Amino acid sequence: ADFLSNDDYAVYVRENIQVGMMVRCCRAYEEVCEGDVGKVIKLDRDGLHDLNVQCDWQQKGGTYWVRYIHVELIGY
């Protein structure tokens, strides 16, 4: 899907992401590398560009918070 802005994409992720879902990092962020796959373990839905998504990352080996714009949804 094509999104006009980071805000549009962040809204899409916020409306669709669920705890337990698998996500792929589509934009490297601090300790999380692009392409790493993680399981969503906690969500904080306050802002669009806060650290909203806590995942247990496979490559990184452990949990880390990222923003909506850092992840793509790959289902369960």
Rank of each mutant, 00 (worst) to 15 (best):
V66K: 01
H70E: 15
G61Q: 08
G38K: 03
I69W: 10
G75H: 15
E31S: 12
L43K: 02
G75W: 06
Y68G: 08
Y9F: 04
M21T: 04
W57Q: 00
I17G: 00
S5M: 15
L73T: 01
V32D: 02
H70S: 08
I41D: 02
I17M: 08
L48G: 11
D7A: 07
E31I: 01
W57R: 01
Y76R: 14
R24Y: 01
I69H: 14
A28S: 10
D8W: 05
V66Y: 04
I41C: 07
H49N: 15
R24K: 11
E72K: 04
N6P: 14
V13P: 02
D46Y: 14
A1D: 13
R67Y: 00
E72W: 01
D36R: 02
F3M: 15
I41F: 03
L43W: 01
Y9P: 07
W65K: 10
I69K: 13
I69G: 12
D56E: 14
C25M: 07
M22T: 13
Y68S: 12
V19K: 04
Y29T: 15
L73P: 12
K60G: 09
E34I: 09
V19M: 03
H70P: 00
D50M: 09
Y76I: 13
V40C: 03
R67E: 11
W65L: 01
M21A: 13
G38E: 00
R45D: 15
Y29E: 00
W65E: 01
V19N: 04
E34P: 05
H70Q: 09
I74G: 14
V37S: 07
L43H: 05
L51M: 05
Q18F: 07
Q59G: 15
W57E: 01
A10S: 07
F3L: 10
V53L: 05
V37Q: 13
D44C: 09
V11D: 10
Q58W: 03
Q18A: 10
T63S: 13
G38R: 01
C55D: 03
V71R: 02
A28E: 12
L48H: 07
I74P: 15
N52M: 11
C26V: 13
L48F: 08
G20N: 05
E31D: 12
L48S: 11
Q59M: 04
I69D: 13
D50E: 12
L73K: 06
R24W: 02
D44I: 04
T63R: 11
R27I: 10
G20H: 03
E15I: 00
I41G: 00
C26P: 04
V23G: 01
V66I: 05
R14S: 08
T63W: 06
E72C: 09
E72A: 07
Y9A: 07
H49R: 06
F3W: 06
V40Y: 00
R14Q: 15
T63L: 13
H70W: 00
V66M: 15
Y64D: 03
G20D: 04
G20V: 00
C55I: 03
V13R: 01
E15L: 03
E34T: 11
I69R: 11
I17P: 08
N16L: 10
C33F: 06
I41Q: 03
Y76M: 10
N52L: 06
H70R: 00
H49G: 14
R67I: 02
V37R: 07
T63K: 07
E15A: 14
V71M: 02
G20T: 08
F3V: 04
N16P: 03
E72H: 03
C25S: 02
D46T: 15
A28L: 01
H49Y: 07
D36S: 00
T63F: 06
V32G: 00
Q18I: 04
G20S: 04
Y76L: 14
R27F: 06
M21G: 05
G47S: 12
C33Y: 11
V71C: 13
T63Q: 04
L73E: 01
G75D: 08
I74R: 10
M21W: 06
E15K: 09
L48C: 11
C26M: 13
C26Y: 05
D8R: 09
G62P: 00
Y68D: 11
D36Y: 09
V37E: 06
E15F: 02
K42H: 06
I69Q: 07
I41S: 09
D50I: 05
V11H: 13
D56V: 09
A1T: 13
L51I: 01
V40D: 03
L4D: 04
A28Q: 13
D46V: 10
V32T: 00
N16W: 03
Q58F: 07
R24P: 02
M22G: 10
A1P: 05
V13Q: 03
G38F: 01
I69A: 14
H49I: 00
G47M: 14
K60R: 12
V40P: 04
D7R: 12
V11E: 13
W65G: 05
G38Q: 01
W65Q: 03
E30S: 09
V53F: 07
K60M: 05
R45A: 06
V66A: 01
V13A: 01
D50G: 15
M21S: 08
C33H: 05
V37I: 14
D36Q: 03
F3Y: 15
G75V: 03
K42E: 12
N52A: 06
N52K: 12
Q18D: 09
N52W: 06
K42G: 13
Q59L: 09
E30M: 12
F3E: 08
G47R: 06
N52Y: 14
K42M: 12
G61S: 07
Q58V: 14
G35N: 15
V71I: 14
C55P: 01
K39M: 14
L48V: 10
G35F: 03
W65F: 05
F3K: 11
R27H: 15
L43D: 03
L4E: 15
L43V: 15
D8A: 15
L51R: 05
I74A: 14
R24F: 05
E30D: 06
V37T: 11
D56Y: 10
G75F: 08
H49A: 08
Y9R: 09
L43G: 00
V11P: 00
C25T: 02
V23C: 03
C26I: 11
E15T: 11
R27D: 09
V19S: 09
V23Y: 01
W57T: 07
D56N: 10
N16A: 09
V40I: 07
F3S: 08
N6D: 13
G38A: 02
V32W: 00
I17C: 05
W65H: 04
G61Y: 05
A10T: 09
Y29F: 12
W57C: 07
V40R: 02
R45Q: 07
D2K: 10
R27S: 11
Q59K: 11
Y64K: 10
I41P: 03
K39H: 13
Y76H: 07
N52Q: 09
D7Q: 07
Q59A: 11
M22S: 11
L48Q: 13
A28Y: 08
Y12Q: 09
R27P: 06
E15Y: 02
E72Q: 07
W57G: 00
L43N: 03
M22V: 10
I17L: 11
M21K: 04
L51T: 04
V71E: 03
V66T: 12
Q58I: 05
L43E: 00
M22C: 00
D36W: 09
Y76Q: 15
F3P: 14
V37N: 05
D7N: 11
W57V: 00
D7M: 08
V40L: 01
K42T: 13
Q59N: 06
R24N: 09
V40G: 01
S5A: 12
I41R: 08
L4G: 09
W65C: 05
A28K: 12
V13C: 04
R67V: 07
K42Y: 11
